[in-house]
Write a protein that binds this DNA or RNA. Structure first.
Lengths: 101, 101
DNA sequence: TTCATTTTGTCATTCTTTGACAAATTTACT
DNA sequence: AGTAAATTTGTCAAAGAATGACAAAATGAA
């Protein structure tokens, strides 16, 4: 999925005909902050992913992957991550995995 | 460089014959916390990268890349980032870049 | 054993994130 | 235009995470 997690939530919300207030109620968060989440100003609370999956009948695993990849993309974007830097990071992640074992 | 940033600092420190106390003094941080940094328990403070570059006569740009790739690797490691997830994240980072323009 | 060095424990301080509610703005409808 | 619903933005206190600081314990080398 090529969109931010906030945009994804907004898509889910609107295609299912919910207002911010309604969905915020279901997720037990403030509707004003849900607006910020949709607009990328704040992050969605990880601990509420299962609730979100329930509300929209989504696979929790798939949703967690959506979330994790979005967070990683955000990180890459923020550091202005080049192809080369990403390659180095990949190797280093691999090194960390090897370390643990 | 295939090592954590902490291990990198430790290597620099020992090959240059510094003790934790000595290097911590040069970097103006607590030596106990420098120990934790070397052992990956705490993160090196980004704002001190220029000082670190000076102390060991390193290119600040190269050092910043070392740091950024380490942080990204840590992130990838922590989420148990698969190849597929990384690919998705890359696309999403690209999407974010496109958004900004 | 003794001294230097490193690691670990703990906690107060600082910084960042989140929750909450008000106010302002936008949108859609008549 | 008016107005009601929906969304966005402003602000700030509370919660949580990161950092600084110093003591104490462990390790190592002579």
């Amino acid at each position: 999925m090529k969109e931010t997690f906030g945009e994804y939530i907004k898509m889910l919300r609107t295609t299912n005909g919910y207002t911010l207030t309604q969905l915020a109620g279901l997720l037990d968060i403030d509707f004003a902050n849900l607006s910020r989440i949709e607009n990328g100003i704040r992050d969605f609370d990880k601990k509420k992913l299962s609730r979100l999956a329930e509300v929209f009948n989504l696979s929790i695993e798939a949703l967690q992957d959506e979330y994790a990849s979005d967070q990683l993309a955000k990180h890459m974007y923020e550091i202005g991550c080049s192809k080369e830097l990403l390659k180095v990071a990949e190797e280093k992640a691999e090194y960390r995995r090897a370390l643990k074992k």
